[in-house]
Design a protein around this nucleic acid. Structure first.
Lengths: 136, 136
DNA sequence: CATTCTGTAATATTAATTATTACAGTACAA
DNA sequence: TTGTACTGTAATAATTAATATTACAGAATG
């Protein structure tokens, strides 16, 4: 489905939760995740768009959670980072002169959608707060 | 998690199911999927190893299902093509001097494992026969 | 107004996926 | 017994996706 974005985003959110409202810089978070700060800022764009975090520009700026960790479900996070389909991308262009080839993509998409819904509802059972509490 | 392998493998299996025991060549299947025949043969290696298909070499050779489509669940197929983790690969090496960085990978793996189990059991509700019947 | 941040674009690097070429070996069938 | 049509598999190339880097304008602080 997706890439390391879910892991990176969740890592960011846990750090912000642990920071208890204190602003964290992208550089600091990048140091914990061990990736480039620009990648953190890019993920923040997305997280901000979804209303999970807020940023403050300028000196002593940084990011913080924009809503309580109890109100951010992992399913919502999954949906926010998901870009392609769960079980495989529908980039194949099967032969339309073959009955199977002609319909496989729509059947695959149905299957993926059904399955993804289950996955999301499973992830929705857990909030950022729950996940964050796994850390001592 | 994984790539287009799930889609390719499922496409192959549906073709074989529809062929009702008749041997299909990798070239023929590649034509329906619209990919290179070598990729089909590579997927067949895996499907054979899992006991889903059998191949016959030589002239007029090809592949066929090795067990009834009713006995191949999509969950088993998923497990057979899965190679990396569902929600993202654990290739990050977070900073171990940070509490969050130090433990995030093991917590992520726990989460992924839990979630993947749900996904597999969901996919297990459907067999190749069920999926194949979606095609007229 | 120097400093420390964010936001964002542009580009480079690396890794993963997919495709291609090549050929040995197997089975059939004339 | 030999040509043909396949599989099996390795080696390599090409393409695409993911990640990293560099660069710099603009915002807020002190």
């Amino acid at each position: 489905m997706n890439n390391g974005k879910f892991a990176i985003s969740l890592h960011i959110l846990v750090l912000l939760d642990k920071a208890k409202g204190e602003l964290l810089s992208s550089e600091y978070m990048a140091g914990s995740i061990n990736i480039n700060p620009v990648l953190v800022r890019k993920e923040l764009i997305n997280l901000r768009k979804k209303g999970f975090v807020a940023s403050k520009e300028g000196k002593n700026g940084g990011a913080t959670l924009a809503k309580p960790a109890e109100e951010i479900t992992l399913g919502a996070l999954y949906e926010s980072v998901r870009q392609s389909h769960l079980l495989g991308s529908q980039k194949n262009e099967p032969n339309p002169s073959c009955t199977v080839g002609k319909h496989i993509n729509s059947h695959l998409n149905d299957l993926y959608d059904e399955t993804e819904q289950i996955l999301i509802s499973q992830l929705n059972k857990q909030t950022l707060a729950d996940f964050s509490h796994r850390f001592t």
